[in-house]
Design a protein around this nucleic acid. Structure first.
Length: 396
DNA sequence: CCCTCCCGCCAGCCA
DNA sequence: TGGCTGGCGGGAGGG
């Protein structure tokens, strides 16, 4: 993971080489944020986002689902989401914390409570929005029932329970309910899966957790740490309750605001050409997919959570790096106005992201950016007041 | 080698 | 139906 230059020969032709790093979900998320986190943005069209970010629509669904569960976005309608911003995070976290306290964990296998919740929150409107959140969730305590498997939920419900969004929520709840400083994805998967032992299911879950962790990292809600060698884990950073502001800050920098003239990452967007060199498998279709698993756990989850230890009153970590984040947390560029300058800067700079927003990686990036920034501004760093606080100079 | 995780197939769902 | 969603896991990048 070192920073730039990973490909030896890539110097000049950076876009022929395929580099998954430039296409990571975390990076995409960062770009997504920088693209929409500004004044005047309220509605986001999936197609538009995909086009501007240069990725396939499928990837936007991933980002959006995760972001929504964190309160940054709210689904408005088909193909349309409304941008709430980081100011929506506290509320979302409160809700999650509250649910976690009551022991509500959306189960993986059964959709029991989910359904109930669905009725309450989901469908009609977006909760993350204004003051009202979904009503309380009384619901269950169903630990037992859940385990009892009420399979059968409609396919829809079933599907939903396995959604990235739900997984994200449960993943976050783990952090909100444990005393542990860090949680590895393995542990998280284990805890979230409870009784399920199926290895392949587990593998799939972990893949998803990687996706989630990457975007949450790019948003600075969590950060990757290396606990034991070979076993990376994530630490919850969260945010400080009152301190959050509509636009606090968050990471990311990104390519140009507008349509990327030049894509800052990922070469051809749609992976048209350079994609990985897949063998020419033309014909063979994928074998039939097997719909494995089914069990569910739930009660187990709760128990598992317990094992992690429960906290009673947590004070989230500072969301804003300025405060507590350790090093390298992030940079931000947001702020609506005055973006022009940044935009141009960004355009010329073209940062190199790294895969996930691991803090170390980010640190590299930030460092590079910072350096560049200093040069660019030649000492006079405060070009705009709002930006003075911006970070660059103080991170790291 | 094995951890990471991108890619896109394809199945439900809904207008 | 066709388009939207998004689960899922193959398999390649990369340390």
């Amino acid at each position: 993971m070192s920073s730039s230059s990973s490909h030896p020969l890539d110097a000049g032709m950076r876009h022929h080489a395929y580099s998954r790093k430039q296409k990571s979900l975390g990076l995409l998320c960062a770009n997504f944020v920088s693209l929409y986190d500004r004044d005047g943005v309220d509605s986001i069209g999936l197609d538009d986002a995909a086009r501007r970010l240069g990725v396939e629509r499928r990837r936007i669904y991933d980002i959006v689902n995760i972001m929504e569960s964190v309160g940054v976005l709210a689904r408005k309608a088909k193909n349309a989401y409304s941008w709430i911003g980081f100011s929506g995070i506290p509320k979302a976290l409160d809700r999650l914390e509250d649910e976690a306290r009551r022991g509500i964990t959306r189960s993986e296998g059964s959709g029991f409570k989910d359904d109930l919740e669905d009725e309450l929150d989901e469908s009609p409107d977006q909760y993350a929005d204004e003051g009202d959140e979904k009503p309380s969730q009384i619901v269950n305590s169903s630990s037992l029932s859940s385990g009892a498997c009420c399979k059968a939920r409609s396919a829809t419900a079933n599907r939903r329970e396995k959604s990235l969004g739900t997984l994200t929520e449960n993943f976050i709840k783990l952090f909100l309910t444990t005393d542990r400083d860090t949680i590895s994805l393995d542990d998280a998967a284990r805890l979230l899966l409870g009784a399920i032992h199926d290895a392949s299911y587990m593998r799939t879950k972990i893949r998803r957790l990687y996706d989630i962790a990457n975007v949450l990292s790019s948003i600075n809600l969590i950060e990757k740490t290396q606990v034991e060698a070979r076993k990376p884990a994530f630490r919850w950073l969260g945010l400080k309750e009152g301190k959050m502001k509509a636009d606090n800050n968050v990471t990311v920098v990104a390519p140009g605001p507008k349509k990327p003239t030049k894509r800052a990452f990922g070469t051809e967007i749609t992976n048209v050409d350079s994609k990985k060199s897949r063998p020419n498998l033309t014909a063979d279709k994928k074998p039939i997919k097997v719909q494995t698993k089914s069990g569910d756990m739930n009660e187990c989850n709760r128990v598992a959570l317990k094992q992690l230890g429960s906290k009673s009153g947590y004070a989230f970590g500072p969301f804003h790096p300025n405060g507590v984040m350790k090093r390298g947390a992030d940079v931000e560029v947001k702020c609506g106005k005055g973006v022009q300058d940044w935009e141009s800067l960004a355009a010329s700079f073209r940062p190199q992201y790294h895969n996930q927003a691991l803090s170390e990686l980010f640190a590299h990036y930030v460092e590079a950016w910072k350096t560049w920034y200093v040069e660019a501004t030649k000492g006079s760093r405060n070009l705009q007041q709002p930006f003075s606080k911006l970070v660059t100079s103080d991170l790291l």
